[in-house]
């Protein structure tokens, strides 16, 4: 009876969650005709669409590999830079107790709470002033700006939990602040660093708004996908095949690091 009730809830959840995902998959293995027929399963499933995408055999796909490369480059650069910025800041605030650390932490939190689409407008203008528009670095730096407040906050929470005596022991053992940082702090923070690196990487890979504002040629895949909407008779089956290629890596990374992500991120997301 109770099990039946649980299943009664589970089935709508499953449908609700998977329908849009299944729809992408369905389109990506359908021919154009079959895709537009509203069928729930294609008469002749085919991988042809993926071939077309990989060979860049469509007007919208001319830059496919280049866009993928851009996405990879931007995501990795954001991940690395965010880690550098956030780890050093968290270490300075939490372990070195630098004066003014609290002010910086609050500034970061403030940034974290500005709605992203609101910050996009002044950011766009400023990137123009800096002459960075259309340069991949503009997107990387924007994403680092968006990712680091949360990253700093999570890392600070995690490093506050490290025993203070470790630092004192290291100081007495003769460690300089830099030695403390890379010989003691970084190894102990590894799980959180994995989580934060992944978080920033995914944030950058998935970003659409900033990407399409800041870059108009030399675009990442996310913006490339957006271009498909330019006309009414877009090749939706190709769009969906490309979209699937675009969606699988972040999902895979997310699930691979879920162990770290769940502990590291949701725990810090909202304090109970």
């Amino acid at each position: 009876m109770r099990e039946a009730r649980l299943w009664l809830i589970a089935i709508p959840i499953l449908l609700w969650t998977l329908l849009p995902i299944y729809h992408i998959f369905l389109f990506s293995i359908s021919t154009k005709d079959s895709a537009f027929s509203g069928a729930l399963w294609p008469a002749k499933p085919t991988l042809h669409n993926f071939g077309t995408v990989f060979r860049q055999e469509h007007f919208y796909l001319h830059d496919f590999w280049h866009q993928i490369w851009n996405s990879v480059w931007i995501a990795c650069a954001t991940g690395v830079l965010t880690l550098v910025v956030a780890t050093t800041a968290a270490f300075a605030i939490s372990r070195l107790k630098v004066k003014g650390g609290r002010v910086v932490m609050n500034a970061a939190l403030f940034t974290y709470f500005i709605p992203a689409a609101f910050l996009a407008v002044p950011m766009y203008k400023a990137m123009g002033t800096y002459g960075l528009l259309n340069n991949r670095w503009s997107l990387v730096l924007a994403m680092v700006t968006l990712a680091s407040p949360y990253a700093i906050w999570v890392l600070k929470q995690a490093s506050d939990r490290l025993p203070w005596e470790l630092d004192e022991a290291a100081r007495i053992d003769g460690a300089t602040p830099l030695q403390l940082f890379h010989l003691v702090y970084l190894p102990l923070m590894m799980p959180s660093l994995v989580a934060i690196g992944t978080y920033a990487l995914l944030l950058a890979w998935n970003e659409y708004l900033y990407a399409f504002l800041l870059l108009s040629n030399n675009i990442p895949l996310a913006v490339g996908l957006g271009h498909f909407l330019a006309s009414d008779d877009s090749p939706w089956e190709l769009l969906m095949a490309t979209a699937l290629i675009y969606a699988v890596p972040p999902a895979a990374i997310y699930y691979a690091f879920r162990r770290y992500m769940v502990g590291g991120l949701t725990a810090g997301a909202v304090k109970t």
Binding site: G101, P122, M123, V144
Partner: peptide, 23 residues
């Protein structure tokens, strides 16, 4: 060292948050 290690984020904040927002 604390100040030095805080610098990267302070720079990010000044250049990509404070200045843009003020402007």
């Amino acid at each position: 060292w604390g100040v030095i290690m805080l610098m990267p984020y302070i720079l990010v904040f000044l250049v990509f948050v404070l200045y843009p927002v003020t402007y």
